[in-house]
């Protein structure tokens, strides 16, 4: 894991050094992708719920669905897709230098990243927040009780910074033990090397389920940070940004309009709702601004379903899901009190 990580990091950096200066110029990303015949979409090393490998070696998960949605929007075929699994320290460089067309992984949208790394964040597909896992028998019920504690954390994310900020704000004097690999982090925590682990609550839920006795551990209610996990593209190609942004919005909008993978064919021809007809390309010309076929949104829903379906399948109680309840969370549709909201498609 470590070696491959470094190789990808170096490879990404070498590419910045060696590629001709012409690559980044005028040619549009859409043209490049069409010419190549498939989309190169970047995820991370397998992480339950977001991107994981099944027994046949196929990628699945919430973020993989976004990749498939964009591939379906462009080609009408979600399999015209190359999933790249890139380490977290090479991820933004690999996107900025053109290795990947699209980054769809648990990357937190922050101002520094959006403005200084040559990339643009587009649309949030999961609202997460950082929290703590502790042993139930420790008797800790609030993060404020972690004064002087050792906390295990994985590197390469905003997690370390949030932890330090939280400790400074509340004068907790937490000392962090940093790991590259979450398996070693969890092993250390389970052996008592740390009083708590910290990470995004959704991924910790996935990790706890793999512990020997999941019931012995609990995620504290405190939330340290806002973690909007969003997809990102290279800075400067607005048409490409539009395609990715509206592909994600199409997933959310479809759920709001009641379009599902199962009824999308029926809805396209028989719906009375002009919003549905416009979105699915039966009416109007929403596709023209994107440079795609009129049935782009239809292809997305046909391929991966709407946001609610994807959530249930991978993040919720589906067979491959990791069991994070959606009801009452930030990830519910805005009509149910959540933050999932698509601007109108008209």
């Amino acid at each position: 894991m470590k070696l491959s990580t470094h190789i990808t990091a170096l490879a990404a950096i070498t590419t910045v050094m060696a590629t001709g200066a012409t690559v980044a110029s005028a040619e549009s990303t859409l043209d490049i992708v069409k010419e190549r015949g498939h989309l190169r979409c970047q995820v991370g090393p397998p992480s339950p719920g977001y991107y994981n490998l099944d027994s046949d070696g196929n990628w699945y998960g919430l973020d993989v669905s976004v990749c498939q949605a964009v591939a379906a929007a462009i080609f009408g075929d979600q399999t015209k897709l190359e999933i790249q699994s890139v380490s977290s320290q090479a991820r933004f460089t690999a996107l900025a230098n053109g290795e990947s067309d699209l980054l769809s992984r648990t990357a937190t949208w922050t101002m520094t990243r959006d403005t200084q790394l040559g990339i643009d964040f587009l649309a949030t597909n999961f609202y997460d927040g950082q929290g703590f896992t502790v042993r139930k028998d420790s008797g800790i019920t609030s993060a404020m009780e972690l004064k002087g504690a050792k906390v295990c954390v994985t590197t390469g994310t905003t997690t370390e910074l949030n932890l330090t900020d939280f400790s400074r704000q509340n004068n907790l004097n937490i000392s962090n033990v940093t790991f590259e690999d979450y398996n070693v982090r969890d092993e250390t925590y389970l052996n008592g090397g740390c009083d708590a682990t910290t990470g995004d609550k959704s991924s910790m839920a996935g990790n706890i389920s793999a512990f020997p006795v999941p019931g012995d551990h609990v995620i504290l209610p405190d939330t340290l940070s806002k973690e909007p996990l969003a997809s990102a593209v290279r800075h400067g190609d607005n048409q490409w940004s539009d395609i990715v942004r509206w592909s994600v919005f199409a997933l959310i909008n479809a759920e709001e309009l009641g379009i599902t993978q199962a009824n999308v064919d029926d809805m396209r021809s028989n719906s009375k709702d002009p919003n549905v007809l416009r979105m699915l390309g039966t009416e109007g010309n929403l596709n023209e601004g994107l440079g795609l076929e009129p049935d782009w949104a239809y292809n997305i829903i046909k391929a991966v379903g709407n946001y609610g379906e994807i959530y249930e399948k991978y993040m919720g109680d589906g067979e491959q899901g990791i069991g994070i309840p959606r009801e009452g969370s930030l990830n519910a549709l805005w009509t149910n009190g959540g933050l999932m909201y698509s601007p109108p498609m008209r």
Binding site: K2, I13, A90, T112, T155, T157, E180
Partner: peptide, 26 residues
């Protein structure tokens, strides 16, 4: 290789954590 077990040596601390926070990879 201490990076694998969370020892804060220069690769882990600087080339990994700091790089992720600041982003000056090269």
């Amino acid at each position: 290789l201490g990076i694998a077990i969370g020892y804060s040596e220069v690769v882990s601390l600087f080339m990994q954590t700091a790089l992720n926070q600041a982003g000056y990879a090269v």
